[in-house]
Design a protein around this nucleic acid. Structure first.
Lengths: 109, 109
DNA sequence: CGAAAATTTCGATGTTCGTCGAAAGGTTAG
DNA sequence: CTAACCTTTCGACGAACATCGAAATTTTCG
């Protein structure tokens, strides 16, 4: 299961952020941890950083565990976050290139 | 029917741009006409500019007339565009403050 | 090994959404 | 006034979506 299949189009990225709960999840990941050292080539995250664990996200964004998994999958498919399992927990991070497409859109393509 | 009821939240704005067809409509409006001189106080558009007519949008984004009306309503409700009827046709324009919320989001809130 | 913890998968459910066609509404030109 | 044009409203329909609970999976710890 790759972290990010291909470059998703703009509408897909917007759709990933269009749900209030999912947007809150993204903001939580964004604020609670440093930017992920995700490597596009190797498809892996750096092993040093901690990120935000899923269970910690659920402290700030209350929802069922399965619901959070679904939202994380959507955000990851949109290329916005990277996830990495370390033991029992999953660490979530914002990808450094997450918002470049949106930024280009705002600045007039 | 006000042009824009209240300041919509970020998720609503993203949702308005999350559909490929609707995003194409927005880009069409954005590219084909100058920025609208929409006045937040008076709630009207300046009477000088032409904007892009709905029927012209449908030349570039094929869909049923009722479908386009629906999409324009969504974009307007999200505060992204302003519409103005002039005679038989409806002129559509991007609101000058359309993307400020997204820009703030990209730049880290 | 067995229990506990964190996450995922699966199936189900109710809602929202995008789309269209038909009909109605408003406006201009002849 | 009437016909043509552009747009909106209405109702309907199928697809997609957010959410959950239960069960399964993965991993650590005693």
């Amino acid at each position: 299961m790759p972290e990010e299949p291909v470059a998703p189009d703009l509408a897909t990225i917007f759709k990933a952020l269009a749900d209030p709960t999912r947007l809150a999840v993204f903001q939580c990941i964004r604020c609670c941890g440093p930017t992920c050292g995700y490597d596009t080539d190797s498809g892996t995250c750096c092993g040093e950083c901690d990120g935000v664990t899923a269970c910690r996200i659920r402290c700030q964004v209350p929802c069922a565990p399965s619901t959070l998994t679904h939202h994380l999958n959507e955000l990851r498919a949109a290329g916005l976050i990277a996830t990495e399992r370390r033991g029992r927990v999953v660490h979530c991070r914002v990808r450094p290139d997450a918002l470049v497409h949106i930024a280009a859109f705002v600045s007039g393509k």
